[in-house]
Nucleic acid binder design. Structure first.
Lengths: 195, 195
DNA sequence: AGTCGATCGTTTGGGGCCGTACGTTTTCCG
DNA sequence: CGGAAAACGTACGGCCCCAAACGATCGACT
């Protein structure tokens, strides 16, 4: 040992002491906190190995991957599937374009749309990088059997599906009546109330 | 349907077409990609419900939680357990301090160390927010039985443990001989090489 | 043809986040 | 006692990320 990490069991015990009589959903807590731990660990591993060597960030890789798999795509779909906001995509796509990995073209009939597509260089890069990426996916899950991987994927899919189906409803329920408490971010109104 | 999302099954099929003859580790890919999807979905749900109402970001909450559970702590331990860099913690802690939720004090005998502790206001906030947080952890996992949650947590823990044990070794192996490809980030040298 | 609301991608502002550089303090080893 | 090495928290550069504002475009309805 030696590292400053506390085990999940220790943590749960300390939490129970803090909460005292309030019943704690331990299994659910363990599942959720481990999702985040695993996601962080996997992402860092990949960013510091395969993606580092290719000089790609996680997000940039995700965007390239979407366009690689699905071919020429509208930006809104890429942002949705990549799980980032459209504003983020604008910047990432611009960077990738400047590196000659993808192109941005106007849609033929709808002037509002922008289409993303890989350049030959982008295709080559993905053909080289993705097998290595998948090999690391296999590496990080090596202590799990393929069947266990599927079971894991299944459980996670249920969580995602539940949030997609009922997350918004739930959030509205929770905020019912309360002030929406705007986030500190976001662009400011041009002005207006001067004076 | 209706939304622009493609299912995992569709994605896997398209990937197989792209990769053709290259053998693909499908189960592992499904597991890893779902980890990230689930982590993003859960985080967004919590940020937009419980944490929004408390005006906390995910990271800020994580930091408060660590200090809440373990009491007065050295910053390096908090950063480690929260899964963020020490540089990030400096900023987050400063923000929380300015909001009167935690204090930063010098260690008595080791002048290099800084200790974090919750203020009474911080204690109150966590006593109020954490039960709600845990309730949402239960909500997102409601389609899984407690036993399934534990199984899920187990599988994820194996991944984290594997990366902790063998991740660094693996990364060195992969980069063997190659140029380390420095990241574009990081502070610049004060100067030096002028002329 | 003209208006108006919806939808698109982009811009903008605030903050999170990492990794490197840096100055300070402590510890190690003569 | 003194200098080197190690460890700490902070400053900073660059990118990611979101949400709201914004201008361009589209579509429906008149």
């Amino acid at each position: 040992m030696g590292v400053g990490k506390r085990s999940i069991t220790e943590t749960e015990k300390a939490v129970q002491e803090r909460l005292g009589d309030i019943p704690l959903r331990r299994e659910q807590m363990a599942a959720v906190s481990n999702i985040y731990r695993a996601a962080t660990a996997v992402r860092q591993h990949l960013e510091n190995s395969v993606l580092r060597e290719a000089e790609l960030t996680w997000t940039a890789f995700t965007v390239l991957w979407e366009v690689w798999i699905w071919g020429e795509s509208e930006t809104r779909h890429v942002a949705e599937d990549a799980g980032i906001s459209k504003g983020t995509l604008t910047g990432v796509a611009r960077t990738l374009e400047s590196r000659g990995l993808l192109t941005r073209t106007q849609h033929a009939s709808d002037g509002r749309l922008v289409l993303l597509a890989l350049t030959p260089a982008g295709e080559e890069l993905m053909a080289r990088v993705f097998p290595a990426f998948n090999a690391e996916e296999a590496f990080v899950t090596e202590d799990l059997s393929p069947a266990e991987c599927l079971k894991l994927a299944d459980g996670l899919r249920k969580i995602v599906a539940r949030l997609e189906a009922k997350g918004e409803e739930r959030r509205e329920e929770l905020l019912a009546g309360e002030a929406p408490k705007p986030r500190r971010s976001g662009r400011r109104p041009r002005n207006g109330a001067a004076g």
